[in-house]
Structures are given as structure tokens and as C-alpha cells.
């Protein structure tokens, strides 16, 4: 059985610029024949340089954009079908970069209630959903706080709670940590991982931070509107030269291991975390001792 929640079939997208008479001035192809398949319950990461088409792709996944060519199927529904747009947006929620642009309520719980209210959820159920969602992202203590008193990480978690309250199957996060301090980044990534682990919500994370990608099930790398690499974090981060070509870098532990290898120290490929690196170094030393 096919358990994919999101599937794009050879989608292309053109940004068309027109002059004041409606004549086409220029056409910029932002996506070219992209095939992306995400299974329900997966945590996937999309990497790619500025202008590679990541955000354009993300906007296709909850029908903010409709492809110029090809089709996008979300939970069995075609995003080109206008009658299905509301259902699609309920199924696939979206979180953006700037938390300040996403919060509209003057009180946290009001903000979180906005989505389900718009969906016509009965008031009693709304209250339950708001409470649940705030607990899930660890913000229950701030239910009655004013959003502008919160830190960036906290605001972003409130935004996530707002999407959660609509009971989505999938959440798309477009650089949710780009404007946050280290603590805020950790909070948001932790919340995303918990949603995936515990609530089994499919997560699609777009980021420029390699460290945030290491826990995903699959990574897709984009360049000039195309998917140019895909695989598990281990597979992707074992190809440093290629990543560099696409303006990406390595997680720090991987970078250290890679440079040690270049210096002639034989460590295994695909080290992602500091503990793996420490273990590999200990094993290297033990092996060397044996040889002596």
C-alpha cells in the first residue's frame, strides 16, 4: 500500500513578471521537474542555497502555490483542485521564518485558537485543542501571556501550537530557526522532533543549519530548482565535496571527522554526532595499540 502523504509529480513552477499592460516581461523557472515523495510519519529535511527553490517547493506542499506543470498530491488530494484547498491546508500546516509575522492574537491562547475557530470547530473543543497543543510544545504555562513578551523560540513554539490545534497530519517548517538564538533554535527543533516521535506528525523542515538535519529520516538537497541529492543523513553527509559545490557545509562533528580523515586518520564515514566521533576515536586508538 502507498503510504505517501505528499507526492509531487514532475512539478515545475514559473515566476512570471508582467508589465503594466499585462504583457509578459520575464519568466523565471524556480522549479524544474521535481519529484518528491514523503511517507506519512517521516521527518524530512530540505537543504539548498538561497534561491535554490526550497521555499517555492514548500509553498506547493500546502497549496499556497500551484505548479505550472505537474501535480502535487497531499493526502490523496490534488492541490490544483480549488474545492480541496481548505482540506489541504488543514492537513498540511506551515511555519515561517519570522515568528513576529505569524502571531496575531494579543494573548497566547487566543492566537492558538485562531486556526480551529476559522475551521468552525465547536468552542468547547477549541479550548481542549488549544490546551493540548500548548502542552505539546511546552508552552502551557504561557497560555494567558502576551505574545510580545515571549522570546523568539517561545513565539515560534506558539506558532507551531497554532498549527497543531488544526490537527494537521503534516507540518512544513520553512527556516523556522533562522532568526533565533541558540536556545530558541534548540527549543524549536526539540518541539519538531517530539511532534514527529510522539504525535507521528510528518515534518518537512527547511533549514540552513546542517546540525538540524542530522535527525531526519531523509535529506533532499536542492540546486537551481532541482533535487540534486537525496538520502539518509549518513549518506548525504558522506559526500562533503558535492555538498560544498551546492553551497552547503557539514555538521561540526562530521567536519572534524572529515578533516581528520584527510590528515590520514582512518575514521569511518558518515559520523554525524559528537558521541559517534568520540567512539570512533577511542576505537581508532584501541586498534592502533593492538597493532603495536
Amino acid at each position: 500500500m502507498d503510504n505517501s502523504i505528499i507526492q509531487t509529480n514532475q512539478i515545475s513552477y514559473d515566476y512570471v513578471r508582467t508589465d503594466e499592460n499585462g504583457e509578459v516581461e520575464s519568466v523565471h523557472r524556480a522549479l524544474t521537474a521535481v519529484d518528491l515523495k514523503v511517507s506519512a510519519g517521516d521527518f524530512i529535511t530540505i537543504l539548498g542555497h538561497n534561491g535554490s527553490g526550497k521555499s517555492t517547493l514548500a509553498k506547493h506542499l500546502n497549496a499556497l502555490l500551484v505548479p505550472t506543470e505537474g501535480t502535487v498530491i497531499v493526502d490523496g488530494k490534488d492541490t490544483a483542485d480549488e474545492e480541496k484547498i481548505l482540506e489541504i491546508r488543514q492537513c498540511a500546516g506551515m511555519i515561517f521564518q519570522n515568528p513576529d509575522n505569524q502571531i496575531i492574537g494579543t494573548v497566547v491562547e487566543e492566537d492558538v485558537a485562531f486556526g480551529p475557530e476559522n475551521m468552525g470547530v465547536p468552542p468547547k473543543e477549541i479550548a481542549e485543542r488549544v490546551k493540548e497543543s500548548l502542552i505539546t510544545v511546552g508552552m502551557a504555562d504561557y497560555a494567558e501571556a502576551s505574545p510580545n513578551k515571549l522570546s523568539g523560540g517561545q513565539k515560534q513554539r506558539v506558532s507551531i501550537a497554532g498549527v497543531l490545534a488544526m490537527h494537521p497530519k503534516c507540518i512544513i517548517m520553512d527556516e523556522p530557526t533562522a532568526m533565533l538564538d541558540p536556545q530558541g533554535r534548540k527549543e524549536v527543533i526539540r518541539a519538531a522532533r517530539a511532534l514527529n516521535d510522539v504525535e507521528k506528525i510528518t515534518i518537512i523542515l527547511i533549514t540552513h543549519y546542517m546540525e538540524e538535519a542530522i535527525y531526519s529520516d531523509r535529506i533532499f538537497v536542492m540546486d537551481r530548482g532541482k533535487i540534486v541529492m537525496q538520502g539518509t543523513p549518513k549518506e548525504i553527509f558522506s559526500r562533503p565535496e558535492e555538498l560544498k559545490k551546492y553551497r552547503m557545509s557539514l555538521p561540526q562533528a562530521t567536519e572534524v571527522a572529515y578533516r581528520l580523515k584527510k590528515e590520514g586518520i582512518d575514521l569511518p564515514d558518515g559520523i554525524l554526532e559528537k558521541k559517534e566521533l568520540a567512539k570512533a576515536c577511542v576505537e581508532y586508538l584501541a586498534k592502533k595499540k593492538q597493532e603495536v
Partner: peptide
């Protein structure tokens, strides 16, 4: 709310591993 650079945590992990 801050942290040291990731690499100093890597070195700590190595130190903890002996």
C-alpha cells in the same frame, strides 16, 4: 540561553570518552 561553539562540546565528548 546561549551555548559554547559546537566544537567545544565535541571536545568535551572526547574527553569524557577518555
Amino acid at each position: 540561553g546561549l551555548a559554547a561553539p559546537e566544537v567545544s562540546y565535541i571536545l568535551k565528548a572526547l574527553k569524557d570518552a577518555g
